[in-house]
């Protein structure tokens, strides 16, 4: 018979528990949803988690103004309506919004450039929280600075709310390319690399030794089609965030399922052809190159 444990010490909010949670999401799609109905559509489509927010990035972009954490009532309703994990966004540096989201019981907080930053110099000290955080990054140094602050999952930023995948590609290639660079360096070169990347030396050494980030790396920002999702997976993403791409399209139910299938079968072009067929209108896109620089979200975060 099983014996009762000698030590009943349990620890919540450890690095392994926070990083481990992200490991469970690998190979999956995380979908932005604005109400319970969309959350259920996402869950039935096979989403691995939902991101609860009041406006998807395309609407934030169109409507302008200051964008903040969502109404707690709306987040609580979504938490109650699905069995999969629920994430929510806090403004960069707004640690009180993060405290509120933790109190609401969300499973992951996205400290996100999609919302208007609350602090133009500092990010949230994420180590102080029990709930884990995901943060965006455009390059390896930015990713390692976020990990140093306690982020336990990274997503390439891309350019949210555009339906243009080009920035997601740029950022993913840069992060993974810089990881490969570090892996080929001699130990003494890593000191200079840490300086060049503006990243903590210990994390630089860790990445060089393992040949990958120490946390899960998803992609985000502009993924609108099954082919976009598979492109990012083939490039080396562990999974995909889809913001406006699903519920701003002509047939969200079908597109949500198609993007899930494309993420799972990302190496199978015949399957990708099948799931890409008959999806109706994709979201209306905006070319990132035509966006005025001050409207670009990728530059938010430091």
């Amino acid at each position: 018979m099983a014996t009762e444990n000698a030590s009943e010490t349990t620890q919540t909010g450890t690095v392994r528990v926070k990083r481990g949670m992200a490991e469970m999401l690998k190979g999956g799609v995380i979908m932005d949803v604005v109400d319970q109905e969309q959350a259920k559509i996402a869950e039935q489509a096979g989403a691995v988690a939902v991101m609860a927010l009041e406006r998807v990035p395309a609407d934030i972009r169109a409507e302008g103004g200051v964008s903040r954490m969502s109404d707690p009532e709306m987040i609580a309703k979504i938490v109650d309506s699905v069995t999969i994990p629920v994430m929510a966004k806090a403004r960069i540096g707004h640690f009180v919004e993060a405290q509120i989201l933790q109190a609401l019981g969300v499973d992951y907080i996205d400290e996100s450039e999609v919302l208007t930053p609350a602090d133009n110099a500092h990010h949230i000290d994420k180590r102080l929280f029990t709930v884990p955080f995901v943060c965006g990054a455009t390059n390896l140094g930015e990713a390692l600075r976020r990990i140093n602050e306690g982020a336990t999952m990274i997503r390439s930023k891309g350019e949210a709310g555009t339906g243009d995948v080009s920035n997601a590609v740029t950022h993913m290639r840069r992060i993974l390319g810089e990881v490969r660079q570090l892996s080929s360096m001699s130990p003494e070169e890593l000191y200079a690399a840490a300086k060049d990347f503006h990243a903590p030396y210990d994390l630089v050494v860790e990445v060089a030794e393992r040949g990958s980030l120490p946390v899960v790396l998803f992609t985000a920002g502009g993924i609108a089609t099954p082919a976009d999702a598979a492109l990012m997976m083939q490039m080396g993403a562990d999974g995909v965030f889809v913001g406006s791409g699903i519920f701003k399209s002509g047939d969200p139910v079908k597109r949500a399922e198609a993007i899930v299938q494309a993420t799972r079968h990302f190496q199978d072009p015949a399957m990708l052809a099948k799931v890409s067929t008959g999806l109706g209108e994709a979201m209306v896109g905006i070319n990132v190159a035509e966006l005025p620089v001050h409207h670009r979200l990728e530059d938010r975060g430091w």
Binding site: S7, T10, Q11, V17, G20, M21, T130
Partner: peptide, 9 residues
């Protein structure tokens, strides 16, 4: 939920 996730021996 995730905030209750834990390690134990």
């Amino acid at each position: 939920r995730q905030v209750d996730s834990f390690e134990s021996e």
